[in-house]
Amino acid sequence: MSTPEVPFPYRPDSLALKHDGGGRPVAFAPAPEPLPVPVYDNHTHFDFGDSPVDLAAALDAAEAVGVAGAVQVGCDLPSSRFTVAAVDADPRVLGAVAIHPNDAPELAAAGALEDALAEIDSMAAHPRIRAIGETGLDYFRTGEEGRAAQHHSFRSHLEMAKARDLALQIHCRDAHEDVLAVLAEVGAPSRLVFHCFSGDAELAQICNENGWYMSFAGTTTFKNAQNLRDALAVADPALVLAETDAPFLTPHPFRGRVNASYMLPYTVQYMAQMKEIELSEMCLQLSKNTRAVYGSWHD
């Protein structure tokens, strides 16, 4: 199968400016020093952005700095379909499929949510789709009128993950208490990941107690993110993952540039410093944890 093209601008070996779809210049950060032990980007979006790039080239650049593979994450039907194509195209990709909580109210209003959920469930049968996600609750962009649809969608995704014995990637924004309430009501699958962990030390301790994974992104390096550093400090190392959420959330000091999987080492290095763990030890733990959640990239 031919490699699908990935629509975002990508040249990690260059600081040259390109232009996005609106004609604005886009700068790319230099490649970091390679990690001593390979890790995996637990959450990325190869299909987001404006300019096409070859998926294999993006993965080659990541692999060159010690990022051995990635979990491509769907947020709606088109991106989930892309995810299925991507996992077929390159063995360095595993996938997650879902309807994002911000899309659920619109689909519900159009009478299309149940059909969309059914298609997600069908795609989840693919052997290289290893997670349902990203799903959850987001009260930042959706008001009270859309919360019922979000809750229904979240519950449906939870049941889907449990029925298929897949991991679940949670998107949570301004809704931690309600996410925890739904998990208590419906029950969590055996492997649960708080993607782009956005809570505090208290939520991290709840995750420790329940065996839930916490995936830290470039936001951990932001100057105004002390809550994330406090959470990372108390997080059980056996429950910690790393991600880019690319092309978003580029780590400091490159905020404002396009993020990509090749930039994950910047976040991993920072995490090791915050946890006061040798970088090689952090990488070994992250790799072990990631495989515990998603299985082997080589199956």
Score class of each variant (00 low, 15 high):
residue 224 N to R: 09
residue 159 E to C: 15
residue 138 D to L: 01
residue 212 W to A: 08
residue 80 S to K: 06
residue 87 V to S: 06
residue 5 E to R: 11
residue 7 P to T: 09
residue 39 V to Q: 01
residue 23 G to I: 10
residue 144 E to S: 14
residue 39 V to Y: 00
residue 176 H to R: 01
residue 249 L to N: 03
residue 225 A to V: 06
residue 174 D to A: 08
residue 251 P to E: 13
residue 265 P to Q: 06
residue 153 S to L: 11
residue 208 N to A: 06
residue 137 L to S: 04
residue 95 G to P: 01
residue 132 I to M: 06
residue 285 Q to N: 12
residue 41 D to E: 10
residue 238 A to W: 09
residue 34 P to R: 09
residue 289 N to Q: 09
residue 98 A to N: 03
residue 200 D to V: 05
residue 52 P to S: 08
residue 183 L to C: 11
residue 226 Q to K: 09
residue 225 A to W: 04
residue 25 P to V: 05
residue 239 L to T: 00
residue 148 A to L: 13
residue 215 S to C: 12
residue 103 D to E: 14
residue 245 D to K: 02
residue 86 A to D: 08
residue 118 A to F: 11
residue 27 A to Y: 07
residue 221 T to F: 02
residue 157 H to W: 11
residue 213 Y to C: 07
residue 104 A to M: 07
residue 74 G to C: 07
residue 238 A to P: 12
residue 191 R to W: 01
residue 199 G to Y: 00
residue 214 M to G: 02
residue 207 C to Q: 04
residue 51 S to W: 05
residue 116 A to Q: 03
residue 1 M to P: 13
residue 10 Y to P: 01
residue 46 F to N: 07
residue 162 K to T: 14
residue 167 A to S: 10
residue 57 A to W: 09
residue 173 R to F: 03
residue 213 Y to I: 02
residue 270 Y to M: 04
residue 258 V to N: 09
residue 138 D to Q: 02
residue 75 C to M: 13
residue 243 E to W: 01
residue 190 S to G: 14
residue 216 F to P: 01
residue 54 D to M: 11
residue 256 G to Y: 10
residue 35 L to P: 04
residue 193 V to G: 02
residue 122 S to A: 15
residue 231 A to M: 07
residue 19 H to T: 15
residue 267 T to R: 01
residue 82 F to K: 01
residue 182 V to N: 11
residue 249 L to T: 02
residue 136 G to R: 01
residue 138 D to H: 03
residue 242 A to P: 02
residue 181 A to G: 08
residue 259 N to T: 03
residue 91 P to M: 06
residue 33 E to R: 13
residue 28 F to M: 13
residue 256 G to S: 11
residue 117 L to I: 12
residue 190 S to N: 15
residue 41 D to N: 09
residue 235 A to L: 07
residue 61 A to I: 01
residue 205 Q to M: 13
residue 64 A to E: 13
residue 43 H to F: 12
residue 271 M to C: 07
residue 115 D to M: 12
residue 156 S to N: 10
residue 144 E to A: 14
residue 76 D to L: 07
residue 170 I to E: 00
residue 293 V to Y: 00
residue 13 D to M: 01
residue 226 Q to R: 10
residue 142 T to M: 05
residue 79 S to I: 12
residue 171 H to P: 00
residue 254 F to S: 06
residue 209 E to V: 05
residue 133 G to N: 02
residue 277 I to M: 15
residue 264 L to P: 03
residue 270 Y to C: 01
residue 186 V to H: 12
residue 108 A to L: 04
residue 246 A to E: 07
residue 66 G to F: 13
residue 121 D to K: 14
residue 233 A to I: 11
residue 205 Q to W: 10
residue 257 R to K: 15
residue 76 D to A: 09
residue 282 M to Q: 14
residue 232 L to Q: 05
residue 232 L to F: 10
residue 86 A to R: 02
residue 276 E to I: 03
residue 77 L to P: 00
